[in-house]
Design a protein around this nucleic acid. Structure first.
Lengths: 186, 186
DNA sequence: TTTATTCTACCTACCAGTAGGTAGGTAATC
DNA sequence: GATTACCTACCTACTGGTAGGTAGAATAAA
């Protein structure tokens, strides 16, 4: 079972560094030191691996969100940005969801559905936090939760891409901080 | 010469819909109704095609920017967002630069350089408009041009991705409008 | 004005390499 | 003896890319 988890971990890294069409079973096998065919023992197809990757990330997000339940809306948003920032810090990785977006039209339908769901979950979580945050005065009263949630996701995803182009992970942080300031300032 | 331009156009569409690793010479040849080998008459390698794609987009941006020289800073930013929105309107395409970001680490060095330059050009253009806009009072005085330029790019790029996931191009528009409001409101 | 040459815009046929994937086997563990 | 965790050995389909050829248009030389 160790091997499967390792394979998944390698795949996740490759995905975030090179995109879904940018890595192969062979790459993973090489890094693991086993044969490519053996990977099919764990993942019957690349679609299968892709789905596992998405589910994994979805589960990690859920777990992450659960830990933050007690925090204030503002702190939640801060942590959300920080989560993305930690991607950038790690070799300028980008978010899995962002990766899949680019390849979206070249993806199997089941993966498309799964990734869309994941994205929806994140948006709903953000929206919920923002609704409370706006009511509580953490954020500007004039904000609409839905649009703001989208803006936050966009800034985080886009921020990761900027960081990669500028070869500097702090760009992502300052970009999102700029937005955060705009959301709170009265 | 017509064929080369057509090939480039098809490649551009494929790139924006499926990513750089999501289309092949064969795809383009099929759509053109010529043989794959004949494409190598125009583009000696895929890297060559990729570079042409980037240069093409860079030239188009320059031309676009030149036409806007007389507009006010605020109008320029508005048009910038609208340019991205027109991508989304056209089959939920995303920005070429955003596409290349995901595949970045899997790209030939020359392409990496070229795409980074393009991104820099856009950022400088935005920054210049913002510096004037902030001084003129089009935008909040407290804004830093550099960070704001990055935030705008991030929101546009990210907004396109959101639009694709939500299968609705207007999401991109409302996301960026939300940001624009935040940048102007006093 | 004819002839010779060269260029354009493709073609067929092929290459090595890699993609995802499968069939069937083996050695160790429960 | 069944299950687990691999393996070897293969397959088909496709990738980017090359070698060599050709019909026809353009250009230059006789």
């Amino acid at each position: 079972m160790e091997t499967k988890a390792q394979a998944l971990e390698i795949a996740k890294t490759q995905l975030q560094l090179r995109g879904y069409n940018g890595f192969s079973f062979q790459d993973i096998a090489n890094e693991l030191g086993i044969k490519k065919a053996s990977l099919h023992y764990y993942f019957s197809s690349k679609e299968d691996l892709g789905l596992a990757l998405i589910e994994d990330y979805a589960a990690a997000f859920q777990q992450w969100a659960d830990k933050l339940a007690e925090l204030s809306p503002y702190e939640k948003i801060e942590k959300y940005i920080l989560m993305f920032y930690s991607f950038a810090q790690d070799n300028l990785k980008i978010c899995p969801a962002g990766v899949f977006c680019v390849d979206f039209n070249a993806l199997p339908v089941r993966m498309q559905k799964s990734i869309t769901e994941l994205q929806d979950t994140q948006r709903r979580w953000l929206e919920k936090a923002l609704i409370r945050g706006i009511k509580d005065g953490d954020f500007k009263k004039s904000l609409k939760a839905k649009d703001t949630a989208n803006l936050l996701i966009a800034a985080c995803q886009g921020g990761l891409q900027l960081a990669r182009f500028q070869d500097n992970c702090r760009v992502m942080k300052s970009t999102c901080q700029t937005l955060l300031d705009l959301l709170t300032d009265i």
